[in-house]
Nucleic acid binder design. Structure first.
Length: 203
DNA sequence: CTTTGGATCGTCT
DNA sequence: GACGATCCAAAGG
């Protein structure tokens, strides 16, 4: 489990980190923190989605009103609504304009635990606060109102920051969860052994 | 422990 | 009109 070598105040990410394709960016987001007001959570599980190259991507068939923010610059937040009740959040990566994105699947609570527990009364244990893409949004209070914001802008309500925790030297890797198309592509990445990961690995 | 089905509605065909 | 990049409770072993 990653720990800050030298704990620091979270600072906005260098946007250069997000310029490569989603499969390169995804494992490098492990260990970074999401900041929403007083709530802070450390990313431990993500998935890469690759636009027109990826039948499982919401952008596979091109731009629509829903997925428009995926076509924005790296660092844009793409939030979508699904199953009639859940929000899920992605970090748009590069190359710009190709709708690559990294789905935020699970995180470990760092600060603002009381607010997260209040936002997720169903969670019996703190381990269950953010261990799924919709749970993560519920715990942090991320909704469609945040769609399209710049995660690296200090003025944004939802921000992506670096507190000095390095990504794992070797992230665990496997199949993406909950998709039927392109299910064999190993574009899910997580912190090996971290108890806050959403589900046990499927190969 | 694992499996199953219900909730609930925006989106695109 | 069908179907989700899901979650949860209830039922079954």
């Amino acid at each position: 489990v990653a720990r800050p070598a030298t704990p620091t105040e979270p600072v906005a990410l260098d946007r250069a980190l997000l310029q490569k394709d989603a499969t390169a960016v995804a494992p490098r987001l492990l260990g970074k923190v999401l900041v929403v007001g007083d709530r802070v959570a450390r990313i431990v599980e993500v998935e890469a989605y690759r636009g027109a190259e990826d039948p499982a991507s919401h952008a596979y068939r091109g731009r629509t009103p829903r997925n428009a923010s995926m076509f924005g610059p790296p660092g844009t937040l793409y939030v979508y609504f699904t199953y009639g009740m859940h929000w899920c959040a992605n970090v748009v990566s590069g190359p710009e304009g190709l709708a690559r994105a990294v789905l935020l699947r699970a995180a470990a609570p760092v600060a603002g635990l009381e607010e997260m527990r209040a936002a997720r009364p169903r969670a019996r244990r703190d381990l269950d606060l953010l261990n799924g893409p919709a749970k993560l949004c519920q715990a942090l209070g991320v909704t469609g109102e945040d769609n399209g914001c710049d995660l690296l802008d200090p003025a944004s309500r939802v921000r992506l920051a670096d507190d000095g925790t390095p990504p794992p030297r070797r992230a665990a890797r496997g199949r993406r969860i909950g998709i039927s198309a392109a299910a064999d592509r190993p574009w899910r990445y997580w912190v090996s052994g971290d108890p806050h990961v959403s589900v046990a690995p499927r190969r």
